[in-house]
Design a protein around this nucleic acid. Structure first.
Lengths: 157, 157
DNA sequence: TATTGTTATACTCTATAACTATA
DNA sequence: TATAGTTATAGAGTATAACAATA
């Protein structure tokens, strides 16, 4: 006897998944003294020396949020602000040796979580799920309609 | 030649999906004068008359959040607070005729969005994706570890 | 003593605006 | 005039505590 097919509550599922994952990442990153946003910035900064603005764009953060994030990273000795040789307004975010170590630790930690989550799915569903999720975000769920009271983004990503 | 398999950025994908969907729901519900949280409460209230506390539990809302939500719904004439016949502390949330109409409109609207989103996936991926997402939330992503600075939930769900 | 509903409040975080110094 | 970085502030919203009425 077939069960009644109900449309799954995507709003609830996405919200729950995002919140749980964010919580797990936050908890694990606490052990190495990073907040998820700092981990994101640090990791991106490691890929190549860039200005704050460039980093903010790549992390999809407001430039004012980037200021406080870099403040913290700098205070922790993980990055340095260096004057740009070509633009005296701009500052290059350079990752220190210590920052490099922490960033790599954080990257591995996050990758481990992702791998473990995907690993919890049956082998034959894993790739389909990952591809479908990526496609939804890229296609159907890109450019949502604007609303009068914009939905605030939760912290980090 | 096989492309390098990178672990997809689940944190980014879930956050983006949740935010985009929330934005889309907010935009569409604005047309019928509801916020997503109100729609959720109204819809659950329609399933049977319950106390505020019970409704709050089912919507996973704080009871103080429920107060302001019911305030708004009541002011809009969509629900009424009635004294519980069995517990003089409690109040039963009764949906009005107008509220019933709006709730059904909202339900249909949300269901339509979900169906459209799932419909954007290839036929052979749809069920796998929905099942995998539901399983992740139910299993691997339930009970995330607690962290020192708890991750705030964005509004609604 | 615990619970329902309410009110008040603290606190965090996002978003915006304004300012400086350069370009 | 526009942009990089900074600072300050407004505003929204969550979470918490405290209270009154009742169990």
């Amino acid at each position: 006897m077939a069960t009644v097919e109900r449309t799954p509550d995507l709003g609830f599922l996405f919200a729950k998944a995002a919140h749980s994952l964010q919580t797990e990442m936050t908890a694990r990153l606490e052990h190495i003294g990073l907040m998820p946003r700092e981990q994101c910035v640090l990791s991106k900064a490691l890929e190549g020396e860039q200005t704050q603005i460039r980093l903010a764009e790549r992390c999809e953060l407001d430039k004012t949020t980037m200021v406080v994030t870099v403040d913290r990273l700098e205070k922790a000795g993980l990055v340095e602000r260096r004057p740009s040789p070509t633009d005296r307004r701009a500052r290059i975010i350079a990752v220190t040796e210590k920052g490099k170590a922490v960033a790599e630790e954080g990257d591995a930690l996050i990758e481990g979580i992702y791998a473990d989550i995907l690993g919890s799915l049956p082998d034959d569903e894993r790739a389909v799920f990952a591809n479908a999720l990526a496609r939804l975000v890229t296609d159907r769920l890109s450019n949502p309609p604007t609303c009068v009271t914009p939905v605030r983004r939760p912290r980090t990503s």
